[in-house]
Computed example of a mutant assay.
Amino acid sequence: MDLATITAGMKERVEAKPAFGNTVKFDFGDAGTIHIDGKNNNHVTNTDGPADCTLKIALSDFVDMVEGRLNGMNAFMSGKLKVDGDMSIAMKLQSIIG
């Protein structure tokens, strides 16, 4: 699964939900970024910019999380997922993305 496919799927799921009031960035390193502007109707782009919360994870680990092979809490505890910024915003993502 590549960044374009993940972005398209996230757009479909996230943009249909009510705005959650914060900005979030998924930073996949050299593979790119996904930015969710929850202040602007949950608009999803691949534009890199500032965010209230940034989640840093390898794209392959993110795919494993999405496909159920990696638990988000385990990823965080093992250092595969790093959260910069407001942790409570990261917790909101479960209801927004799922």
Rank of each mutant, 00 (worst) to 15 (best):
N22V: 09
L70T: 14
K11C: 10
L93Q: 05
S95A: 09
E67K: 15
K39M: 06
K39H: 01
G85N: 05
K92F: 01
A51F: 05
G32M: 05
G79Y: 07
T5K: 13
I89N: 01
T54D: 01
N74I: 13
G9S: 07
V83Y: 09
A31W: 04
M87G: 01
M65W: 03
S60L: 02
V24I: 10
M73Q: 15
G68N: 10
D84W: 02
Q94I: 09
M77L: 13
I34V: 12
L3P: 03
I96S: 04
D27Y: 06
H35C: 04
D52A: 06
V66K: 14
H35R: 14
F20S: 09
A51T: 07
G79I: 07
F76H: 02
A58L: 12
M73I: 13
K17N: 11
G29R: 03
I97E: 02
K17T: 04
G79S: 12
N46I: 05
L81R: 15
V24R: 00
I57W: 04
I36H: 02
A51P: 00
M10Y: 11
D86P: 03
K39C: 08
N42I: 12
E12Y: 05
S60N: 08
D27A: 02
L3F: 10
D48A: 12
N22A: 15
M65H: 12
D2R: 06
V44K: 05
M10K: 02
H35G: 03
K92C: 03
M10E: 03
F26N: 03
S88A: 03
K17D: 06
T7N: 06
G79H: 09
T54F: 02
M87E: 04
M65K: 10
V44R: 01
A8Q: 09
T7Y: 00
V24M: 11
V24N: 05
K80W: 00
F20M: 13
D37R: 07
T47M: 11
K56H: 08
E67D: 12
F76N: 06
H35Y: 14
I6P: 11
T33P: 09
T5D: 12
D64P: 08
I96T: 13
G38P: 08
G49D: 08
